[in-house]
Amino acid sequence: MKLTNKDILGIKELSVDEINLILDTAASFIEVSTREIKKVPTLRGKTVVNLFFEASTRTRTSFEIAGKRLSADTINISATTSSVVKGETLIDTARNLEAMNPDAIVIRHSAAGAPHMLARMVKQSIINAGDGAHEHPTQALLDMMTIKEKKGTVSGLKVAIVGDIAHSRVARSNIYGLTKMGSHVIVAGPAMMIPRDIARMGVTVYNNLAEAIKDVDIIMMLRIQLERQQQKIFPSLREYSSYFCLNRQNIKLAKEDVLVMHPGPINRGIEISPDIADGPYSIILDQVTNGVAVRMALLYLLIGGQR
C-alpha cells in the first residue's frame, strides 16, 4: 500500500485507505519522538524545503522537527526573508527551488490553490501546510489521529466544529476527513461565519453553541482571526465570546467523556475558557505531539523510498 499521488494537497483527494495508512504509519512514529536519541536515519540525504508565505510558528516548527527526526535536511524559507518580498512570483520561486533539487516542498500560503499551482509546476512532492481558507490536510490528519488514539476509532462519532467556518481551512479539511471516515460532523457559528451551501459537504449546521454541542463526542473550537473584526465580518469579540465561548457550564451539554480540541494558538477566554483549555477534557497538547508524528509519516510515505 502506498499513496497514489506525489503530493498531499488536501484531504478531499485522499481515500479512506490512504488516510488509514497515514494514521497507522504516524502511530508507529510516535515512539521515535519518545527516544533519548530522537532521530532515525531514514531520510538521510533528503532535503525538505519549508516554504512559508504566511506567518506560522507551530506548523513550520512541527514540519521542521519531523524532517530533522528523520535525518532530512530541512530549510526554512519565509516570505519575510526571501526574495518573495522583492516581487518574485510564486512561479519564479518554484522554478528556483526546483533547480536546487529538494525532495519535498512544504508550502503555506494565504491564497487558496497556491500549493496546487506549485504541484503542477515542479516534479517534487508538495505538502500543503495550509492554503488560504481551503485546506490544511496535515492538521486534519493529526486531529483524526488524536481522536483515534483517544476514542479508538474515527467512525461513528459526533463531532462539532465551532467558529469561523467560512474562513477556516482546518474546518474544511476536517469535514472532508471526518465524514469520509464515517463520523457525523456538525458546524456552528454566527450566520456570517457559515459559508453558503456548506450543508452540501455533508454536515449539519447550527447557529448556536448549545444545539451544536449537544451529546457530541468531540468539540473542535476554531481560532477566531482577530483581523476579521476589522473587516466588519462580525460585530465584536465581546459578543462572540459571550455566545460561542466553550466553558464549564455549556460543556455539560456534550457527552460526559467529550474531548475538546483546538488547532491553536488559542485566544483564551474568547473561544475556550482557560479552565476548559487546560482541563481534563482538553487534548490540545496531544494534538501538537501527534502533529510531528503525522508529518513524519507523510514525509516517510512521500519521499522515504523510490517513487
Binding site: H134, R169, D197
Partner: peptide, 15 residues
C-alpha cells in the same frame, strides 16, 4: 461564483 464550489475551495465568492 459564490456557492458550493467556492465554499469547498475556500475562495471568496461573488454572489
Amino acid at each position: 461564483n459564490e456557492g458550493f464550489v467556492s465554499t469547498e475551495l475556500g475562495l471568496q465568492g461573488i454572489p
